[in-house]
Design a protein around this nucleic acid. Structure first.
Lengths: 263, 263
DNA sequence: TGTTAGTAGTCGTCTGGACGAGTTGAGGAG
DNA sequence: CTCCTCAACTCGTCCAGACGACTACTAACA
């Protein structure tokens, strides 16, 4: 066994930096310096214990630091590996161009074609219910007013990337294909425009935070990966809110792109 | 000592859910259910050890889970507290309206006035150097070409919220006030327009990830708080890139707002 | 009155050990 | 040759204890 040549670091006992942080530093430098590539296996806990002559908890603490930063992922029974960054996807500003709806494409499908990925949707659920206060405010309805709630999960090439929940005022949705799991070509925006609610503009409010456990589970998120929360409000030509969409997006799968005029 | 009434949970030894996760679940429910409010102190490690009859490491592990989720913050020597969400700041779409520059206001200053916060800038550094490849690509310069690099830190009411680094082609910056720590009224965009490079549009690419240690230090980020990385490119009427700004923003201090036409 | 030293309570770090559970690969049974 | 068993290796969880450092409060002191 030649051992791991990447383990060149030594603990500085005189340093006031905690030992587990020094170990994490060494490994982090190995990753960022390219001596360890995405997918590579880090030295096992046992190897690090021996190399640095420390207790196992100390090594584990260092490993957890790296996992918390999203640099590494542990796999039970196999080892700890350098995280590989999947290719990012791009959200164009013309995402909601009417042209796409005219072609019968929903935004997510049109977008995924650009990057050559296979888009799919599952966990579709349509029901009536009450919106959260922050949703009700944007939709300009009372919080105790019933609205139609459409939730679904989007995946690219089988990998879940986005959880979306749309809220539509009941009078615009009831009795239309918006209540169907599959709302038809062009998605629900096409159905709204068929009712004469011509879409005029959208606002998007973007937040970032760590996922809840439920979100991490549904999006198969590795530890240390934050999510985008994007709340989009769609307005028609009369300035009425016709839909609010609350979306949780895997932070490592998305890059949001916007174009702003200097006006 | 009446003890903590919030500690109603008991460990289920039959459950296959790890003990430290069960403890974290109890505390999480207490926080999310409102029995513990932002700023409240969680039971001490000693209290939890006694209540659940477990070892200290088990309790600490539970606490770290909550801190990793951003729900709680430990303060050395004081206790662990429920995180209080500071008021969010809003990035309007008219952030770069020429009107603001005409009034001699830089974007950050104009914006902070809206929320009634006192804006300040420090750690200003101006130098010449080479851009990162992803910056060079946006700026349409070679990666080995010298550009002017302006970095600074923005704070609101004394709290650091944003680290920004601007890259400007050398021929547009050298010999102008852009090289000064204080570039004058209206900021560097006003200086660029004075040279006849009228700004036409901006693109913004938004990413989210966990902060590096350096970023966490400079932004005083609590554990479990992700950051936005926003790369803005400014174009003039000729379509030339006149500036690329790479910004790291505290994820819990910002809400990004965009307006999109349906065109 | 104002300051200082002490003390109790709290979290941070580290040791050394124990057992459980998932993964892998080699060697043996068929 | 195929399949299965099993041992070795790996990470996950938990215990019991030790010392250090920071905070807040109190009591003694100047």
């Amino acid at each position: 066994m030649a051992g791991h040549e990447i383990l060149v670091g030594q603990i500085d006992p005189a340093s006031d930096r905690a030992v587990f942080r020094q170990i994490a530093d060494h490994l982090r430098e190995a990753i960022e310096g390219g001596r360890l590539s995405p997918g590579d296996k880090l030295p096992s806990e046992a190897a690090l214990m021996q190399h640095y002559n420390v207790a196992r908890m100390t090594v584990r603490h260092a490993m957890q630091e790296l996992q918390g930063e999203g640099l590494a992922v542990a796999e039970h029974g196999r080892g700890v590996f350098v995280r590989s960054r999947p290719p990012v996807k791009r959200l164009a500003s013309d995402r909601f161009a009417r042209r796409h709806r005219k072609e019968g494409k929903a935004a997510f499908i049109a977008e995924s074609e650009v990057v050559g990925a296979k888009a799919s949707v599952d966990m579709i659920d349509v029901r009536e219910g009450s919106p959260l206060p922050e949703i009700a405010e944007r939709l300009k309805v009372r919080a105790d007013e019933a609205v139609v709630i459409r939730s679904r999960r989007y995946s690219l090439d089988g990998r879940p990337v986005e959880l979306a929940t749309s809220y539509i005022p009941a009078d615009l949705a009831l009795g239309t294909r918006i209540m169907d799991a599959n709302p038809g070509p062009g998605g629900i925006y096409a159905r709204l425009e068929e009712q004469g609610r011509t879409l005029d503009r959208f606002t998007e409010d973007v937040f970032t935070r760590m996922p809840t456990r439920e979100e991490a589970r549904l999006l198969l998120l590795a530890p240390g990966v934050p999510v985008f929360r994007l709340i989009r409000t769609a307005y028609d030509l009369d300035g009425r809110s016709v839909e609010v969409c609350d979306t949780i997006m895997s932070g490592d799968a998305y890059q949001l792109s916007y174009e702003l005029p200097a006006h």
